[in-house]
Design a protein around this nucleic acid. Structure first.
Length: 569
RNA sequence: GCCCCGGUAGCUCAAUGGAUAGAGCAACGGACUUCGAAUCCGUAGGUUGCAGGUUCGAGUCCUGCCCGGGGCGCCA
């Protein structure tokens, strides 16, 4: 005999979302129809259940319309047959509507009972298993470690981090990786610049190279090195000094990046060194492999990758005529490492849209390595323009002074940055307005969402102040008011939303949902007084409701969106 | 020239091939002796860039064109 709690709980045995449960019901109904001969035999296609407009119910499926051709019957008739053979359920009722939609309406008692499920499972309540424990690596940010992170990189950080958080929730084993470009020409320039700045700090007249890093932050690194190491690098051969300073500078930059990203609540599991690909022989090994497959040839003193043999647009240089491997060489070796050496089932690279031309090349590399290109997803996102009161904040490249993530963090804090950078689809450009981000106005959705959480905290404070000490015996079946039901139904969308976000890698749906959830809470607040001494039973039921909703808000804000969920504002 | 992404309400943007295309802001008009008004309610606002096509059904898919952005390097 199952208790109500166990029945209502999507427990460890069968973790299923609302849409998954309903789809399963339809599937069973179709199979049963076939068994009794009401529908002809055919392979049942995947059954999709989607949210519906309120006038049609809560969820809807067009499966009968899709089956029309397979069953060679009128969709409306098919829908009727499915409905008649649906297994009995206390979860929802099912209606048929022209031209053949199947519309579910959740039963109020079932909806109310979900409060118990949330209470029982807490922040694990949103977890699902569509990932099936497969391993996925999300590689993101990966900006050249030659200075502080540009604010534009924040979008990459927030996008990659949020995708990683969501993939974890839906049952993937996730690793977050920062690819450190510590090899190649950019590092070389960085080292030479640092050497010049270091010498200058010590009073030597060494010019910064023509194409070096002009930003003032380089002087900061130099000063710190002088402070900690004195002038000993001037006493050694120039090349040796540059090598030593490069490594020292690199560790300073990485330390800074780590801190800036941590303050944005982005933490990596691994920092992967590009240089290591050359030091441990991976590059040579992969090169030999490509050579063996006849995909490498020499021309004009350079080594080329024969991408055209695999359907690519044009061949690519792997090793330049100078003898130095290019970035493409590293990328081949790096992805070999990801898939062959470390064995990730799935890899997501997060790139800004100006690298779009590189996508087909990476897909060709996958073919060359003998790996299914489907296992690599390149997630592209559009650029961010920084504004203040609607006016673009120009970036001065000449001076090398960029608007850094650090500056914006100091000015507006992590919450608006994270939220605002998730309010647009990946393909859309974002105008980030510094003034708006801190403005506590109606224009600012960050506060709107956080206020909902704060308001609930206020209700609970009020309840305790008035002597309500426990409400765990409240009867949730009293939660029948339309606004209570609507709020709960909106809450029930979250596990399915996380699956959608994971499938489409579109985390902007989360911020829209958060606003929508807040709107539903505010509507409930308007319609239903929670603390009411005249109605103690209803008060206890509603306290259970708002406590559960508060938990969901906190979970969404903190665990999914990486923001804070304030008790007071 | 070729490739990719956008074009939806005055503005900024949503919208798995589904039903009458939705939010926020701005505009206008309302609601605080009440658990926090950082809130809520109402009004108004649309030929989804243009023209064809595919089908039970198209903002969504296909073709062509127009406008904007990006990419096409022995840079990353």
């Amino acid at each position: 005999m199952l208790s109500n709690v166990q029945k209502a709980t999507r427990g460890a045995l069968s973790i299923m979302t609302v849409r998954q449960e309903l789809a399963k019901l339809l599937q069973q109904g179709i199979r049963r129809s076939q068994e009794v001969g009401a529908l002809p035999e055919f392979d049942i296609p995947p059954v999709e259940v989607t949210p519906a407009k309120p006038e049609f119910g809560d969820y809807s499926s067009n499966i009968a319309l899709q089956l029309a051709r397979l069953a060679r019957m009128a969709p409306l008739r098919i829908a009727e047959i499915i409905r008649e053979h649906l297994p009995p359920t206390d979860m929802a009722t099912l209606d048929v509507a022209a031209p053949g939609f199947l519309n579910f309406r959740l039963r109020p008692t079932w909806v109310a009972q979900q409060v118990l499920a949330i209470e029982a499972q807490g922040r694990e309540w949103t977890r699902s298993q569509v990932g099936g424990g497969r391993s996925v690596q999300v590689e993101f940010v990966s900006a050249n470690p030659t200075g502080p992170l540009h604010f534009g990189g924040a979008r990459n950080a927030v996008l990659g981090d949020t995708v990683a958080r969501v993939l974890d929730r839906v049952g993937y084993r996730v690793q977050r990786e920062y690819y450190v470009n510590d090899a190649g020409t950019q590092m070389r320039k960085f080292g030479e610049t640092l050497f010049a700045r270091y010498a200058q700090v010590l009073g030597e007249d060494v010019p910064v190279p023509e194409d070096g890093y002009m930003g003032r932050y380089m002087i900061g690194y130099a000063e710190r090195i002088v402070r900690e190491h004195g002038r000993r690098f001037l006493d050694m051969p120039r090349e040796e000094a540059i090598r030593a300073l490069t490594d020292l500078g690199l560790s300073l930059v990485l330390e800074e990046l780590r801190q800036d990203l941590a303050d944005l609540r982005v933490v990596f599991d691994n920092w992967f060194s590009e240089r290591s690909l050359y030091e441990d022989g991976t590059f040579e090994k992969v090169l030999a492999m490509l050579r063996e497959r006849g995909l490498v040839y020499e021309k004009d003193g350079a080594l080329w990758f024969a991408a055209t043999k695999l359907g690519g647009d044009k061949d690519e240089v792997i090793v330049r005529s100078s003898g130095e491997p290019g970035y493409f060489a590293s990328d081949i070796a790096y992805h070999y490492n990801k898939f062959i050496i470390r064995g990730f089932d799935w890899v997501i690279d997060v790139w800004s849209v100006d690298h779009q031309g590189h996508v087909p090349r990476m897909k060709t590399v996958m073919k060359a390595l003998g790996i299914d290109p489907e296992r690599l997803t390149i997630l592209l996102y559009n650029l961010v323009t920084l504004k203040r009161h609607g006016v673009e904040v120009k970036l001065s490249k000449r001076a090398g002074d960029i608007i850094t993530l650090r500056e914006v963090l100091d000015e507006v804090g992590p919450d608006p940055i994270r939220f605002m950078l998730l309010t647009r689809s990946n393909n859309a450009k974002i105008d980030f307005d510094l003034a708006l981000a801190v403005e506590q106005s109606q224009d600012n959705p960050v506060y709107y969402v956080q206020y909902a959480h704060t308001r609930i905290a206020g209700i609970l404070r009020k309840a305790r102040a008035e002597g309500w000490t426990r409400w765990d015996d409240g009867d949730v079946h009293l939660l029948t008011h339309p606004s209570e039901q609507a709020l709960l139904k909106k809450v029930l969308d979250l596990p399915d939303l996380l699956i959608t976000v994971a499938e489409r890698l579109e985390p902007h749906h989360l911020t829209y949902y958060a606003q929508d959830l807040a709107t539903h809470f505010h509507a409930f607040y308007r319609d239903c007084r929670v603390v009411d001494p005249a109605r103690p039973e209803l008060t206890k039921a509603r306290l259970r409701l708002v406590a559960a909703v508060k938990l969901v808000f906190a979970h969404l804000l903190e665990d999914i969106l990486g923001m804070s969920a304030p008790e007071v504002m």
